[in-house]
Design a protein around this nucleic acid. Structure first.
Length: 749
RNA sequence: GGGCGAUUGGCUCAGUUGGUUAGAGCGCCACAUUCACAUUGUGGAGAUCAGAGGUUCAAGUCCUCUAUCGCCCACCA
């Protein structure tokens, strides 16, 4: 949808008229943010403050008819002095008591102004006397209204001085500032200039310094609209993720200012406001007609000299209707035959579940959609608001096209691939944290895509015709699978469960990383390597295929292209997009079995470690002896001897029946097994001892903490039972392991 | 002026309600290239979780203060 579509535009005008008739839209002369470059009014949100290093200038305003007497005022914008219509002091400020009510002369324009007293004046700032320019400053405007001062504008819309600035007319505002300072200095009226840090609004589009400018604009009265929107968030009908943005939202809403919605630009929805040429000739407040269509004549005087307001609406004045105006609210679909469908769709999609956006959009759009939602639909527009991080460059600056510090996504796509871009971005965006992006981050995504591709190739190349027709759950129920296949299924469904939970709780990076870890380090590194010798077996065929296929389906939202491509190769038909996300099969998750498999993998790793430490070449096969300290471990090793032999490249695996160190071996002590690797070289007893000594030291340290914890009566009393049990078991296991380590050390001596 | 975030191995960062010996990617060291993948594999080194205090049986995780960096808001004349 496009907000300039005819029906959408109609909704925008309808909203304007409704709010006007309700008294929530009004026209008025106020100080607004004016961009002299774009020559348009801006809302407060479109004029963000940036820090500036300026000067505070101290100017002398002579007292009329009192030779040599003057008041010093401080200002950062001396050029506005030409429009001064008062000087204000605090009524309690003793220094200035005698001046209140006196007349001063504004230098350079020789205007006579009064010294007024107002408690708004801060006695501590500057000199305690402030020049008042009601047409060029919001505070001064309020003072001007309160004290009935004149409003003298000294600038034209283009930021040049106007005829009220007399000698300075036609100068640019900043040029005028310099000349004015020179002239004041010449006359001895510039007392001093001090460096002064300040901040000023800047145009969001062109970064020009905003001029607070007195101008007739249209406004939305926000306070009444804000009320229900505040309530909804406070009551938890709408939730921000991460939660901390709630405070940002509420703070803004509770201090909300009226919204300037008219813009003097040429693109946008024109205001549905018409003026009668005749009424207005006598009275500017008459002859205003707010109507969706152009009236034939003025209802007040009957004149047909009607013209439409030239201004257009703030772009967000159309955007804030998005959640419902996209569904042909309130008039129904242009094609009336589709009208009932459009009504159903509005009902179905409003409110929607989640809005995902950037932090700076909270004020522009999120808050306003919520307000419009309540005002026009009587309900929230969405339940969750997920605020993602901002992408910053290495210096911490927000990446933006206008700053030119962007990494162009198209370049990344060319160099690393689309999936790489997508996956890497997801995986580094921890909940709502800003990301400092550099190109290297995309290598991980690219490598992962490559890994998925190659693993799929391996599976598909080895897949036999008709091997995968069976239903996995049925098969799992009937057949007795080996530990490796049961392990990968358990791990797959554990991962799936985790990924689903992560997505539901808006932890996308956790989901991506869980998938990455599973697919690469479990499916590829262990599972595919383990099954290679038995890849032709029917059960393995089915499991490896199903796990791959289901993995691709979960991976698809993260890496749509590579998964689709592989899917096509697998099925040659429908798109992977049509596939639902797999469901968790709890019956296949077996944590005990996962642990057992893990312990086999550690035996393999330990043997590899020993091989590496005595520099046995990879292709050379070795003899290994093992002693298991528990019956279950013995059984486990026995049953999986082939797997161990294969991945650790063993010539033989001998199971010992006493725990004595065989000759010419190096050893490794594990939780409940000792592993010995036979080798023909010289045993470097010192190196071997050092290894054990270090491990023993660590273990002693560990045991000490466990012991002291278990001796602590408070711990035993207050900690949950399961924690105490766990600690007890850990201590027993570690003590046993330490004993064996020490025995091993003794044997080496 | 107010609010928020960050501070964890050489670098970039995870770490959900406090509870196994704090993880990952990159980088580094050693070894490996017919056998899906060198955009790879195997093994390894590397962290007093910014500092101080506190709560708790138990703190990277909760509280207070401090330091450094960053962001947002503000009618800062």
């Amino acid at each position: 949808r496009f907000t300039m579509d005819e029906d959408y535009s109609s909704a925008v005008l309808e909203v304007f008229v409704r709010l006007y008739e309700k008294g929530l839209i009004y026209q008025g002369n106020y100080i607004i943010n004016w961009c002299p470059r774009c020559q348009t009014a801006l809302s407060d949100e479109e004029a963000p403050h940036r820090d500036l290093q300026g000067n505070l200038y101290y100017l002398r305003y002579p007292v009329k008819d009192e030779r040599g007497a003057y008041i010093v005022v401080a200002t950062t914008r001396p050029e506005t002095m030409l429009g001064d219509t008062a000087v204000a002091v605090n009524p309690r400020d003793k220094r200035y008591k005698k001046f209140v009510g006196k007349t001063l002369i504004v230098p350079l324009v020789d205007r006579e102004i009064k010294v007024i007293a107002d408690s708004m004046v801060d006695t501590k700032f500057g000199t305690g006397a402030v020049k008042v320019t009601p047409a060029h400053d919001p505070n001064d405007y309020a003072l001007g209204k309160k004290h009935g001062l004149d409003f003298i504008s000294v600038m034209r819309p283009d930021g040049r001085m106007n005829e009220n600035a007399k000698d300075y007319a036609d100068m640019d505002r900043f040029e005028a500032r310099e000349v004015i300072l020179e002239d004041l200095k010449e006359r001895g009226l510039l007392e001093k200039a001090e460096p002064h840090a300040l901040s000023a609004g800047h145009c969001y589009r062109c970064h020009t310094i905003i001029e607070p400018y007195l101008s007739k604009q249209w406004f939305v009265r926000m306070k009444p609209l804000a009320q229900p929107a505040i309530e909804a968030v406070k009551k938890g009908k709408i939730n921000f993720y991460p939660k901390r943005w709630t405070k940002v939202y509420l703070n803004w809403m509770e201090n909300i200012q009226d919204w300037c919605i008219s813009r003097q630009i040429w693109w946008g929805h024109r205001l549905p406001v018409y003026y009668c040429g005749d009424c207005r000739a006598d009275d500017a407040s008459r002859g205003i007609i707010v109507s969706k269509t152009k009236p034939d004549s003025c209802p007040a005087c009957g004149s047909s000299r009607i013209t439409q307001d030239e201004d257009v609406l703030d772009t967000w004045f159309s955007s804030w209707l998005w959640p419902f105006a996209t569904f042909y609210w309130p008039f129904g679909a242009p094609d009336k035959s589709a009208d009932s469908r459009s009504k159903e769709e509005l009902k179905y999609f409003y409110p929607t579940s989640a809005l995902v956006t950037a932090p700076e959009i909270i004020f522009f759009w999120v808050a306003r959609m919520i307000m419009a939602g309540f005002e026009f639909m009587g309900d929230i527009p969405f339940k969750d608001v997920y605020i993602h991080g901002t992408v910053r460059d290495v210096e911490g600056k927000k990446m933006s096209k206008s700053l030119g510090n962007v990494i162009d996504p198209l370049t990344i796509i060319k160099e690393y691939g689309t999936d790489a871009l997508r996956f890497s971005l997801i995986s580094i965006t921890a909940q709502g944290q800003d990301v400092f992006l550099s190109k290297e981050r995309f290598e991980q995504g690219r490598n992962f895509a490559n890994k998925i591709w190659n693993a799929s190739r391996l599976v598909l190349l080895n897949l036999k015709e008709g091997a995968v027709k069976t239903d996995l759950c049925e098969f799992f129920k009937k057949e007795r699978l080996d530990i490796v296949n049961r392990w990968i299924l358990s791990r797959f469904y554990s991962t799936l469960k985790e990924v689903r939970q992560d997505i539901e709780s808006y932890r996308f990076n956790e989901a991506a990383n869980a998938l990455y870890g599973f697919f690469w380090h479990e499916f590829c590194d262990w599972y595919l390597e383990l099954i290679k010798p038995s890849i032709q077996e029917a059960s393995t065929q089915l499991v490896m295929y199903k796990v791959l296929e289901k993995s691709l389906r979960i991976l698809h939202p993260f890496m749509p292209f590579v998964t689709e491509e592989i899917w096509q190769k697998m099925h040659a038909t429908a798109s992977i997009m049509r596939e639902p996300c797999p469901h968790v099969q709890e019956q296949m998750i077996d944590k005990r079995l996962e642990k057992q498999a893990q312990s086999i993998f550690s035996i393999i790793s330990q043997i590899r470690n020993m091989r590496s430490s005595v520099e046995i070449r990879p292709e050379q096969k070795v003899r290994v002896s093992a002693f298991a300290h528990s019956r279950s471990k013995l059984k486990l090793i026995k049953e999986n001897a082939a797997l161990i032999s294969n991945l650790a490249r063993l010539e033989s695996l001998e199971l010992l029946d006493c725990d004595e160190r065989p000759k010419a071996t190096i050893s490794s002590v594990m939780e409940d097994a000792d592993i010995y690797l036979h080798f023909s070289g010289l045993l470097d007893a010192e190196k071997e001892s050092a290894k054990f000594a270090q491990k023993a030291a660590q273990l002693r340290e560990y045991i000490k903490t466990k012991e002291s914890r278990l001796q602590n009566k408070e711990f035993l009393k207050k900690a949950p039972q399961e924690i105490v049990e766990k600690e007890t078991q850990d201590l027993a296991k570690s003590s046993d392991e330490l004993k064996r380590l020490e025995k091993m050390l003794n044997e080496l001596r």
